[in-house]
Amino acid sequence: MHEDIQEVLFSEEEIALRVAQIGAQITKDYAAAVERDGQGIVLVSVLRGAAIFMADLARTIELPLEMDYMAISSYGNGAKSSGVVRILKDLSSEVEGRHIIVAEDILDSGLTLTYLLKNLASRNPASIEVATLLRKKTLEQAKIDCKYIGFECPDQFIVGYGLDFAERYRNLPYIGVLKPEVY
């Protein structure tokens, strides 16, 4: 797998440090709300790519929280978004009146995340914020306000730390650019 990587963008150590910084900021931002409301945050992971990020992020947040998962697809096995969004697995938790933080692996086109945020807003949460590990620099990206951004990254096909190409490379401990001849 490593031989398919053109360059490493973010090392395992850089990712761990940035995730810890995001977790500390979330702890600071939500401490009063959690105390006031008497209930924790609901972290929502978009499967499968964001599961690793959410697991690491959850361990750095020093507040009560619940973890839940949605599976939403707009990619298939291609390198570009298909534009068609489908919910494959919905939340198990009740989120009405609760603070939701969507843990997203990468904000690319924004099509999937735009759909997800509208869907979650219809469930009347107290608030919804986005924590994305990566935000690609693209002109066509939907306008999405991400309160927590790990790294800005180039508009290249990247894999590792949960990000895949055709379900491969998710288990790389770093984030790297996939060689064009591989996809």
Results as ranks from 00 to 15, higher is better:
His2Cys: 00
Glu3Thr: 14
Asp4Met: 10
Asp4Gly: 06
Ile5Trp: 12
Leu9Met: 04
Phe10His: 14
Glu12Asn: 11
Glu12Gln: 15
Glu12Tyr: 07
Glu13Asp: 12
Glu13Ala: 14
Ile15Ala: 01
Ile15Thr: 06
Ala16Cys: 08
Val19Phe: 08
Val19Glu: 02
Val19Arg: 10
Gln25Arg: 15
Ile26Pro: 07
Ile26Thr: 07
Ile26Trp: 10
Lys28Gly: 09
Asp29Ser: 11
Asp29Pro: 12
Tyr30Ser: 01
Tyr30Asp: 00
Ala31Val: 15
Val34Glu: 02
Glu35Tyr: 11
Glu35Ala: 13
Asp37Met: 11
Gly38Tyr: 10
Gln39Glu: 15
Gly40Ala: 01
Gly40Lys: 05
Gly40Gln: 02
Leu43Val: 03
Leu47Gly: 00
Gly49Asn: 05
Gly49Ile: 05
Ala51Ile: 13
Asp56Asn: 13
Leu57Lys: 06
Leu57Trp: 02
Ala58Gln: 09
Ile61Lys: 04
Pro64Ile: 02
Pro64Ser: 00
Glu66Trp: 05
Tyr69Ala: 01
Ile72Leu: 13
Gly76Met: 13
Asn77Trp: 07
Ala79Ser: 15
Ser82Val: 02
Ser82Asp: 00
Leu88Thr: 11
Leu88Trp: 07
His99Glu: 01
His99Ile: 00
Ile101Leu: 14
Glu104Cys: 07
Glu104Leu: 10
Asp105Pro: 15
Asp105Leu: 12
Leu107Ala: 06
Asp108Ser: 10
Ser109Thr: 15
Gly110Ala: 09
Leu111Gly: 08
Leu113Glu: 06
Thr114Arg: 14
Leu120Ala: 00
Ala121Phe: 10
Ala121His: 11
Ser122Cys: 08
Ser122Thr: 07
Asn124Trp: 10
Ala126Trp: 05
Ala126Gln: 09
Ile128Gly: 01
Thr132Trp: 04
Leu133Glu: 06
Leu133Lys: 15
Leu133Gln: 11
Lys137Thr: 01
Thr138Pro: 06
Leu139Cys: 02
Leu139Gly: 04
Glu140Arg: 14
Ala142Gln: 15
Lys143Met: 02
Lys143Ser: 04
Ile144Pro: 08
Asp145Arg: 14
Cys146Glu: 05
Tyr148His: 11
Gly150Trp: 14
Glu152Val: 07
Cys153Ser: 08
Pro154Leu: 01
Asp155Asn: 14
Gln156Trp: 05
Gln156Lys: 15
Phe157Glu: 03
Ile158Cys: 12
Ile158Lys: 11
Val159Ala: 02
Gly160Trp: 11
Gly160Ala: 03
Leu163Thr: 08
Arg168Cys: 02
Ile175Arg: 05
Gly176Trp: 12
Val177Asp: 00
Leu178Ala: 04
Pro180Gln: 04
Glu181Thr: 02
